[in-house]
Write a protein that binds this DNA or RNA. Sequence first.
DNA 1: GTAGATGCAAAACCTTTGCATTTTG
DNA 2: CAAAATGCAAAGGTTTTGCATCTAC
Lengths: 163, 163
Amino acid sequence: MTKPAAVQTVGGHAALDAFVVSQLEAALAASAMRVTAPRRTILQLIADRGGSHFCAADLLVDAKRRRLEVGRATVFRTLDLLLAAGLIERIDLPGGDHAYVACQPRRHHHHIVCTGCGRSTDIADAELRAMIDAIGRATGYVIDRHRLELYGRCPRCRTGASA
Amino acid sequence: MTKPAAVQTVGGHAALDAFVVSQLEAALAASAMRVTAPRRTILQLIADRGGSHFCAADLLVDAKRRRLEVGRATVFRTLDLLLAAGLIERIDLPGGDHAYVACQPRRHHHHIVCTGCGRSTDIADAELRAMIDAIGRATGYVIDRHRLELYGRCPRCRTGASA
DNA sequence: GTAGATGCAAAACCTTTGCATTTTG
DNA sequence: CAAAATGCAAAGGTTTTGCATCTAC
């Protein structure tokens, strides 16, 4: 049996906390995109989710609750933007719906999503690359993209709540 | 560096070919669900896709083209059924949309999806389990579910067409 | 004969788009 | 000031649902 080591978490939800504006400006300015109030608002809403996954509708609800003005269309457009910038990533929940999570920009990684609190942690696993190469050799495929998602219960949820 | 072996393909699209009806009857009868004409039709449509991924709309189109009668609602309902029975699985394409693929029933595995022809192959990789355990240990999560999807070009598409 | 399945069409959803107005750089 | 972004509302597409009818067991 192999001994898979080299597992390294690369940080998770803190990614958008204080950096919010700087990350945004860096990413957007670099692409000739403008830093606007609605975009700041949306980034803030995402940051305030504390790392839990969310979908467009969630943000709209949060915004409405906090009486922040953002249009539906703008939320969708901004999510696409953040996705392209690598500040958020699309994940697919076990149930079948999809959501987004804030994550380390521009670095390949995977996610563990807690089925308890919905928070996610980024994972960088060099091992995976080797395994994928082996699968490619075994099947004859040239594998050029992959996606790994893990679901479970985070330390906090295991000790805190029951179940 | 680890030497990931134990990669074993467990067969792919042939799963629904001849077995169609028997599989269906086995799975459905076991759940007090009925074997009906529309369900057979849908299974046939899936089988005839030759292993390529598809979505509900694709089947509707195929059905219309072949003048087979199936209602929209029935297609959706049957897909849910087959999903629950493990005869098909939901996958998520790189582009973001999701689709289904026929696969080995009731055995845990992963998919390689060819970005050329859309066909998929099932993969059983024992290695992955070890890696996931390691990630669990490293992060403190209790991982109870995972999803791995690989995308690339299959041997046929690499040799046949260019690009 | 009866529980379960079908089909239709309407409803519910989610996401995108057109366009006039506002804002950023 | 020009280009880009916003917001609204309407359009588009997909999946679900209610209900009367039909059918497998």
